[in-house]
């Protein structure tokens, strides 16, 4: 299991990487942590002619909280920030704890030492943890090309199995993860056959409660479609509810309704569909508890 030959290029910055992509065309792939791409190459399931390594690009190795003009302060993750660094960061725990929880479930620690958050999002595996959490919390993808940068809303980014709206000459320079207001809570649940195996299904959820009533909700499923799936039907049921058991059950049912998940050796499509409902219920229960606790804590202040 040795990779096919390729030519390695190291980019010192985002613009240099974009220039290389522009020059090398469709035979080039971005290498960040390489924790998804290099196994595929060792298995000879991918054979790019060029790898453009951005893992040392100085302007992509960052993790901070932006001071948003509108008062919101999104978490901003550069393409060279490793999953482990993002997972352990106080910034992440403050703005996007769901992302930290997703990363903790994604691959083993030594893999997270190299793997990047942005790389996982750009790889767009429909069963992966990080894209599901990112889509659930919401945010944007900043795509870099030779011509400059564009911003893609998270809900528009994924368009198929291992596929995104990114152009061939673009790379993801960073992602912004939106901050949710105080009184929010998250839940992240996944089921896998063993502790370290790829998930069968994932549910990522956030809700915000004001005066005992849900006024914002987000439910995303992983592993049950060709992309991480945003479930607005479930959200609609939650809105205005007390996030109690009944509402959660109805939302979980709605989240799983109409799914036609793929089958593999970890579970059939029918099993995945059942698990989507179970995991949504559990993730929402976690989210409701945390949101309720947050709201109560806020009320006391």
């Amino acid at each position: 299991m040795k990779s096919p030959p390729f030519e390695y290029k190291r980019a010192e910055g985002a613009e240099e990487a974009a220039a290389l992509l522009n020059e090398l065309g469709s035979d080039a792939r971005i290498l960040a942590g390489g924790q998804s791409l290099l196994p595929l190459m060792n298995l000879r399931l991918a054979s790019p002619a060029f790898l453009v390594d951005i893992s040392r690009a100085g302007d992509l190795k960052f993790l901070h909280i932006d001071n948003g003009s509108s008062g919101a302060s999104p978490l901003h993750v550069g393409a060279a920030a490793t999953q482990r660094d993002v997972e352990m960061s106080a910034h992440t725990l403050r703005v996007a704890p769901i992302l930290a929880e997703a990363i903790a479930n994604a691959g083993q620690v030594p893999v997270r030492h190299r793997g990047t958050v942005v790389g996982s999002i750009a790889h767009a595996d429909p069963s992966a943890e990080v894209p599901a959490a990112f889509l659930a919390q919401g945010g944007s993808v900043i795509a870099q090309s030779l011509g400059g940068r564009r911003v893609i809303p998270s809900e528009d980014f994924f368009d198929g199995v291992f596929s995104t709206v990114l152009e061939e000459v673009e790379l993801v320079a960073s992602v912004r993860v939106d901050e949710w207001p105080e009184g929010s809570g998250h839940g992240f649940r996944e089921l896998s056959v063993t502790a370290e195996s790829w998930p069968v299904a994932i549910a990522a959820a956030l809700i915000h409660i004001t005066d005992g009533e849900v006024d914002r909700a987000s439910v995303v499923l992983g592993g049950v479609g060709s992309t991480p799936l945003w479930r607005p039907e479930a959200e609609a049921i939650l809105m205005g509810s007390d996030a109690g058991a009944e509402a959660i059950e109805a939302a979980a049912e709605a989240a799983a309704a109409g799914l036609e998940p793929p089958s593999d050796t970890f579970g059939s499509g029918a099993y995945r569909k059942k698990m989507a409902r179970v995991l949504t219920r559990r993730a929402l229960a976690d989210a409701a508890e945390r949101a309720g606790a947050a709201e109560r804590a806020g009320g006391k202040q």
Partner: peptide, 13 residues
Amino acid sequence: PSFAEYLLPSALD
């Protein structure tokens, strides 16, 4: 065909 699909018990299992 590989250890991604053929699962070995980990310490947590």
